[in-house]
Computed example of a mutant assay.
Amino acid sequence: MPARILIVSDAWTPQVNGVVRTLATVAAELSAMGHTVEVVGPDRFRTMPCPTYPDIRLSLLPRRRLIRIIEAFNPDALHIATEGPLGLAARAWARRRGFAFTTAFHTRFPEYVQARIGLSPGLAYRFLRRFHGAGQGVMVATDSLRAELSRRGFHRLRHWSRGVDLELFRPELRTEAPDFVDLPRPVFAYVGRVAVEKNIRAFLDLDLPGSKVVVGGGPQLADLKRSYPGVHFTGARFGTDLARAYASADVFVFPSLTDTFGLVVLEALACGTPVAAYPATGPRDILAGATVSVGAIDADLRQAALRALQADRADCRAYAETFSWRACAETFLTHLVPLHALHREAA
């Protein structure tokens, strides 16, 4: 039966990140399935730049306007995707009215805060446990993250994997991006946000043959350009240009230790490019299901990068094809709860 689904997220367009891509794609899939979906993001409110990350805008005092939007939409189900100002306001409204809702653990904010300002993550995790504990289910992208959060005292955890756009990200684009042509091979590439929590220096410090490429923008870009003049920095890329960059690399190196999934890993594999990563949540979970080599996971990232060169690019693509955005949307739908579920339980 078609449902009216409201998603509240502090991460939304024009931001470019895995949370936004996931929510936008899932919303489109749910709409195609016949549901009415609305995403409420900061673009509807007055905003201020996020401290230490001005590219991200945070909503200012959104409560009254958000309540009007929610009540005008009259949802059958409410999903609160993030723990920022909009998420807090939606959570407060639902709790005050006695309505049920679900949440998702998309981002390791405690580790991000620690990486940026050195604050111990313990206090942030206490806040997150309280935030998510008020809902009727917390969606998490991987089994290892689910186990970790369970150990940290989170409850009602629900597995919710991800998909990849197999039409956009494809091996046929391996005609070499124009600015890759003159680079010595093999080309080892990082693609994603250029920020301290992504641990990009761990990749750039590796002693590897060939060339290193960084595709993306972010607050650490200028600093890394100064520190690594021998690295090729392309800036942010989108659409086919982004997919061509993935496909033109020989290995995709993912040095992050804090991601909860890593959509970029699937995008690289869909382009036929093998992955090298640390044995961290996200890449460890994604690659664990492969029955053939589609890359390498190792605490020694250099060894992982060199071993990944031996992977078969056709196997990488075939494995990526097992991840479906439609399946992701269907799983999301099964985890939602009716807005009035708590009222029915009380009755």
Results as ranks from 00 to 15, higher is better:
residue 1 M to V: 11
residue 4 R to V: 12
residue 5 I to R: 03
residue 10 D to M: 15
residue 10 D to A: 11
residue 10 D to N: 09
residue 11 A to S: 15
residue 13 T to I: 14
residue 13 T to K: 14
residue 14 P to I: 14
residue 27 A to W: 13
residue 27 A to N: 11
residue 30 L to Y: 13
residue 30 L to G: 10
residue 32 A to N: 12
residue 34 G to R: 09
residue 34 G to K: 08
residue 37 V to I: 10
residue 37 V to L: 10
residue 39 V to Y: 10
residue 45 F to V: 03
residue 53 Y to R: 04
residue 55 D to T: 14
residue 56 I to E: 04
residue 58 L to I: 15
residue 61 L to Q: 14
residue 65 R to G: 07
residue 68 R to D: 14
residue 73 F to K: 02
residue 77 A to V: 05
residue 79 H to A: 15
residue 81 A to G: 11
residue 83 E to D: 13
residue 85 P to C: 04
residue 87 G to R: 12
residue 90 A to K: 12
residue 91 R to I: 11
residue 91 R to G: 06
residue 92 A to T: 15
residue 95 R to E: 15
residue 96 R to E: 15
residue 96 R to K: 15
residue 100 A to D: 02
residue 105 F to H: 14
residue 106 H to S: 07
residue 109 F to N: 01
residue 112 Y to K: 02
residue 115 A to S: 14
residue 116 R to T: 12
residue 116 R to V: 15
residue 119 L to F: 08
residue 121 P to A: 14
residue 122 G to I: 02
residue 125 Y to V: 01
residue 129 R to V: 00
residue 131 F to S: 11
residue 132 H to I: 05
residue 135 G to W: 09
residue 140 V to D: 10
residue 140 V to H: 01
residue 144 S to R: 14
residue 145 L to Y: 05
residue 150 S to C: 11
residue 155 H to Q: 13
residue 158 R to G: 04
residue 160 W to S: 06
residue 165 D to W: 03
residue 166 L to F: 00
residue 167 E to M: 05
residue 167 E to L: 09
residue 168 L to W: 05
residue 170 R to G: 03
residue 171 P to E: 06
residue 175 T to E: 12
residue 176 E to K: 02
residue 184 P to Q: 05
residue 184 P to Y: 00
residue 190 Y to L: 02
residue 191 V to S: 00
residue 194 V to N: 03
residue 198 K to M: 10
residue 207 D to H: 06
residue 213 V to M: 01
residue 216 G to W: 08
residue 216 G to D: 07
residue 218 G to P: 06
residue 218 G to N: 04
residue 223 D to A: 15
residue 223 D to P: 01
residue 229 P to Q: 01
residue 242 L to C: 06
residue 244 R to A: 14
residue 250 D to S: 05
residue 250 D to V: 02
residue 252 F to G: 02
residue 254 F to W: 11
residue 255 P to L: 13
residue 261 F to I: 07
residue 264 V to A: 15
residue 265 V to H: 04
residue 266 L to F: 04
residue 267 E to K: 11
residue 271 C to A: 13
residue 272 G to D: 10
residue 275 V to P: 00
residue 278 Y to Q: 06
residue 279 P to E: 08
residue 280 A to H: 11
residue 281 T to S: 12
residue 287 L to A: 05
residue 288 A to I: 12
residue 290 A to L: 12
residue 298 D to F: 11
residue 299 A to W: 12
residue 301 L to C: 06
residue 309 L to T: 02
residue 311 A to R: 06
residue 312 D to R: 01
residue 315 D to T: 07
residue 316 C to F: 09
residue 316 C to T: 01
residue 319 Y to A: 08
residue 321 E to D: 11
residue 321 E to H: 07
residue 322 T to I: 03
residue 323 F to K: 13
residue 325 W to K: 13
residue 329 A to E: 14
residue 330 E to G: 07
residue 333 L to N: 10
residue 336 L to A: 04
residue 337 V to D: 11
residue 338 P to T: 09
residue 338 P to N: 05
residue 343 H to Y: 02
residue 344 R to V: 11
residue 347 A to L: 14
